[in-house]
């Protein structure tokens, strides 16, 4: 199928790409742009390994057509690290809390945690669980993931760092 030009912002960078209209956003991220933090898991919107942030909301990129990304602002886990490659607080917290083992689910969980850690609202553990309920982890048993998100949120809040 004839490729189509789309323009979007990815991790702060305005980007143009020619995409096949049958291509998923997951393929655009991983294959075309080499943003391999976006993981290829189930391919049917069940596991959340491919989660990206689009215009402030989380989506499974495997069931999102690349052509829909035209004009959008996208964030992947690559966008969380500093330019020097240093980890952000939420990534460090996943390490400290033992919230990552094999790691395939981790980037998806990190993106799904953004609506929580960027908000100055208070969240119960149940609310955190609900926000990451579209992300599966086969290794950690979830508790450490919830801890990492909760601690990062609370720390940011104490320091007045939440944006919203």
């Amino acid at each position: 199928m004839a490729k189509q030009l789309i323009t979007f912002t990815i991790n702060g960078k305005l980007t143009e790409s020619y995409v096949d209209p049958r291509e998923s956003l997951l393929d655009l991220m991983r294959v075309d742009l080499k943003l391999t933090s976006v993981k290829h898991g189930c391919d049917v919107g069940e596991c959340g390994a491919c989660t990206v942030m689009i215009d402030g909301e989380t989506f499974d990129s495997c069931i999102y057509l690349a052509i829909w990304a035209d004009g959008k602002t996208i964030i992947t886990t690559e966008g969380l690290t500093s330019l020097e490659g240093e980890m952000s607080d939420i990534q460090q917290s996943f390490v400290t809390e033992g919230a990552t083992q094999c790691g395939i689910c981790t980037p998806g969980f990190l993106i799904s945690s953004l609506p929580i850690i960027e908000s100055d609202k208070d969240f119960t553990r149940e609310e955190i669980k609900k926000q990451v309920s579209g992300n599966f982890c086969r290794c950690t048993g979830y508790q450490n993931i919830i801890n990492a998100i909760e601690k990062t949120h609370d720390k940011r809040k104490a320091e007045g760092l939440n944006h919203k």
Binding site: T51, E57, T58, F59, D60, S112, V132, G134
Partner: peptide
């Protein structure tokens, strides 16, 4: 579903 499904 989950949050991602509710967003799409």
């Amino acid at each position: 579903g989950g949050p991602q499904i509710r967003n799409i």
